[in-house]
Nucleic acid binder design. Structure first.
Lengths: 201, 201
DNA sequence: TATGAAATGGACAATTTGGTCCATTTATCC
DNA sequence: GGATAAATGGACCAAATTGTCCATTTCATA
């Protein structure tokens, strides 16, 4: 299944080769058709697998016990980590978007997850606003999108980053820097100018 | 050539169908092989075409005559617009990244463009720092990446945005809002807390 | 109008890829 | 160990896709 995910993620449904998936997985090609009927069946299964995977964002309840600012940073960090930990998922989602999401349509659990994420953001941000840390007109959806955009960018452009900027995303320290960048950017954006933040200034 | 770009952008090299490109372009399939030898030749030509297209970012010299803050906003806006105006280019670049950039490698003009863009950013940001508007530790590369990330995100996730958030990116007013969001976010991030910015607060 | 190059349609060959069959092997469970 | 199901390899068929051929048409230019 991992082999399928990887192949579909980088080549899409039509570009993926059934034989290559079989080879990579170590299983016999025959088995694909035995269990999934056809290539599209395997594709659907791979999508479903990717979305029902344990960690969408995991349990977020512990954020409520943290102070607001660390909680915000932690929430940003976890959202970013989710992208880093599941690069094939990120790529597959993009492939689906390129094809107008014709297969993802059949899976309802998806918007479920995002809805609850947004709800968490709203709670956190409201707390920040009440405490005078966060600007009043901050939109949870935009916050979520901005972090996702950065996460997606760093994992979907690894070749370009290497070729144009000599940034090697396979190094853990590179990823750590990127994560720091995202946290820094989002915080400075959503916090009130008067809120003290960060190592610099 | 537009037809090829569009097909390759959404399905990748292997997923694209030569016959579909011929049909869409209105030309005879025969002509593809007449001019480009094979599918991969057409693919290379499409990439080259996409990259050598007139507007990478256009002429940026007029920014020097503007006041710093408007110039920054303008630069952010233009970078964002570049993504909006050339969605197939953005998608194709992602496809290439998914395949480790094996074909883009042959085209040198690319890093040329980004290098000059970064240089422009550096000049602009330095001016902002000298005038006390911009924080001192702002990195031009990170700025550029952040804007690209947002631009890429909004055009590469149109289906998800519609399905999960009911955001219709085909509406010009939606795009205008997204652009505003990007400018707002980047400015609040890079400007000093003491710098007055934006309609809110 | 003559001429040669560019383009065409569409049938067709060649190749790749999706998908199947079957005899055999491997694992599972009693 | 024997019975049953799961898995295998690899040859094989069928369908899709790439790439070719050729007689014909279009079109620019002289």
């Amino acid at each position: 299944m991992d082999a399928a995910l990887s192949e579909f993620a980088s080549k899409g449904l039509q570009g993926a080769r059934a034989e290559e998936i079989a080879r990579q997985s170590g299983a016999a090609k025959r088995m694909i058709y035995y269990y999934f009927t056809d290539k599209e069946g395997l594709y659907r299964a791979a999508i479903q697998h990717a979305f029902s995977s344990p960690s969408a964002l995991g349990n977020l309840s512990d954020l409520e016990d943290m102070a607001t600012l660390p909680a915000l940073e932690e929430m940003i960090g976890r959202t970013f980590d989710m992208h880093v930990e599941r690069p094939d998922f990120v790529r597959l989602l993009l492939q689906e978007n390129f094809q107008h999401g014709e297969h993802i349509r059949t899976i309802p659990e998806i918007s479920q997850g995002t809805r609850s994420t947004i709800a968490t953001w709203r709670k956190l941000l409201d707390r920040g606003i009440r405490e005078g840390l966060v600007r009043e007109d901050v939109d949870p959806v935009k916050v979520h999108h901005s972090i996702s955009a950065l996460g997606q960018f760093y994992i979907s452009n690894q070749y370009s980053l290497k070729a144009n900027f000599d940034i090697d995303s396979s190094l853990p320290e590179t990823v750590a820097l990127q994560k720091k960048h995202v946290i820094d950017m989002i915080c400075r954006w959503i916090l009130r100018p008067s809120t003290k933040f960060g190592p610099s200034e």
